[in-house]
């Protein structure tokens, strides 16, 4: 059976590749081949670590294995990270059972233990996997950087290693994708604004442009970054609040209501439409967060979506009116 060897050193290309993936460039095709990889000089007694075939995942695991002799079993998750793959069913019992058989893992090692990433657990049934393969499953830590300590402690993870966090940096690295995700819709909106300008008596200008761009940033960058510090719990609310603060700032900067560079009606349009937009963008960040339950998201949506539609609808009407009077 073919075994590939790999290193614990990331090269320049790996770093460029991860940067591109974070910005959504070729992100869905950033994969390594499934199979067995050796790190260092593993033998029949060496631990087996299972991971996904998303290259960002594979790289973040192997760079933490300096000085260790271990096997990595990469399963085919279609280039998706462990947690998302477990959620959508590509990191599952079936795939691991199949891969263990196909690679002849029972011949490569003499022990019968595999270490699965803890975040794979939503997709896997450990007892069923053991029943079908004879391999006992031990769930490793959430973060690859704890692997060494976990192995040193005799494959025991501390409570701390078991907990998912969503710290400042974790949120920050996600914001480029949030921003990229809003670009297509934003361009469409700019196109509509441009077309309206052709017939408007008081066309949209620079203020309208940065008011809108700032709103998108409030929802897709500022809300994720400030997430735990923004009061309240629902994401839509947090996004609405950030958008509202931005809109009020824009309005004050332009001298409203006393000597507005734009009229009162347009100001009202902003107040109604823009926070609804940032609320919607922020609500969609629930999917990138690590702690929202589907029941909770549904509850939030049932409350927030109708309000967003009404508020945005009324705001758009006010903005349209403001173009002509």
């Amino acid at each position: 059976m073919q075994i590939n060897s790999t290193t614990t050193q990331l090269r320049f290309n790996d770093i460029i590749g991860s940067w591109k993936a974070r910005w959504g460039i070729n992100r869905m095709n950033y994969k390594v081949d499934p199979g067995v990889y050796s790190v260092g000089a593993p033998d029949k007694e060496s631990p087996v670590l299972v991971t996904a075939n998303y290259k960002l995942t594979f790289d973040s695991l192997r760079k933490e294995l300096k000085g260790l002799d271990v096997w990595i079993l990469v399963i085919d998750t279609k280039g998706i990270n462990v947690w998302c793959a477990a959620g959508k069913g590509t990191f599952d019992t079936e795939e691991i059972v199949g891969r263990i058989g196909k690679m002849g893992l029972a011949e490569i090692v003499s022990h019968r233990i595999i270490v699965l990433p803890q975040l794979g657990a939503p997709g896997v049934s450990a007892h069923e996997l053991t029943k079908r393969t004879g391999f006992r499953v031990i769930y490793g830590p959430v973060r690859a950087k704890d692997i060494k300590e976990f192995l040193r402690a005799g494959m025991k993870a501390t409570t701390e290693m078991r907990e998912v966090r969503f710290g400042f940096v974790d949120r920050l690295v996600l914001t480029p994708m949030e921003l990229v995700g809003s670009i297509k819709t934003s361009v469409a909106i700019f196109a509509v604004m441009f077309l309206l300008n052709l017939i408007a008596a008081k066309p949209f200008g620079v203020v309208d442009l940065y008011a809108f761009v700032g709103t998108v940033i409030a929802g897709s960058v500022i809300t994720p970054i400030l997430l735990p510090w923004i009061p309240g719990r629902a994401f839509a609310w947090k996004g609405w609040l950030m958008g509202m603060i931005w809109v009020v700032t824009v309005i004050i900067l332009n001298g409203w209501p006393i000597s507005a560079t734009f009229g009162t009606i347009r100001g009202i349009g902003y107040l109604l439409a823009l926070p609804a937009v940032s609320a919607f963008i922020a609500m969609n960040f629930t999917g990138s967060s690590t702690y929202t339950s589907p029941t909770g998201v549904l509850k939030e949506m049932k409350f927030a979506l109708p309000l967003m539609v009404i508020s945005a609808g009324a705001g758009i009407i006010a903005l349209l009116i403001s173009l002509f009077i």
Partner: peptide, 17 residues
């Protein structure tokens, strides 16, 4: 999924709007 005795139940899903 990992409780061998089916003592825990939850309606799993994606918490993504």
């Amino acid at each position: 999924n990992n409780c061998p005795f089916e003592a825990v139940t939850v309606e799993p899903g994606v918490g993504c709007a």
